[in-house]
């Protein structure tokens, strides 16, 4: 990956990164109103990171996101999702019943959806990054 020598690319990427990540967050939390949601947001977030890796090199990217951390984030999303589900159980509902999360069922639903979508986003982003780093990492060995 020789692209990390290009100053222009580096600067543009640095400028672009926040925008992409911001857009990802927008998609993440706007999912209730328009198209989008955790999954799409996760992909976008991941792609933003992929861009970073392309420009600054897989090695640098891997330093930012070592496998152990990635695994943690991957599992974290699942844990968050199940955690929300279990919270429903603990508050007397069924698994994944968000209405009981708050006194106002509607608010509870929104909270629940927000949280699990975030869980989805987390796992998906981590998965995209993982996949990319691994596949790109293969190339370096050759």
């Amino acid at each position: 990956m020789a692209m990390n020598q290009h100053a222009v690319l580096r600067v543009v990427t640095k400028l672009l990164m926040p925008c992409i990540l911001l857009f990802a967050l927008y998609v993440q939390f706007h999912g209730e109103f328009g198209p989008g949601g955790g999954f799409q947001a996760g992909v976008i977030f991941g792609v933003g990171f992929v861009l970073y890796a392309l420009i600054f090199g897989v090695g640098a990217a891997r330093r930012v996101a070592p496998p152990g951390v990635l695994r943690g984030v991957l599992a974290g999303g699942v844990l968050l999702f199940t955690g929300v589900g279990i919270a429903g159980v603990l508050r007397g509902g069924s698994f994944l019943n968000y209405s009981v999360l708050s006194k106002d069922p509607l608010l509870g639903q929104e909270m629940g959806i927000l949280l699990i979508e975030f869980g989805v986003g987390t796992t998906v982003a981590a998965a995209v990054i993982t996949l990319f780093l691994i596949f790109a990492g293969q190339e370096q060995k050759e």
């Binding site: 695994r71 991957l74 699942v78 199940t82 589900g85 159980v89 069924s94």
Partner: peptide, 16 residues
Amino acid sequence: ILQVMVPLLAASLCAI
């Protein structure tokens, strides 16, 4: 639900 969630949670833990 626990029947499925117990191994699933444990799997996440194992990954970490």
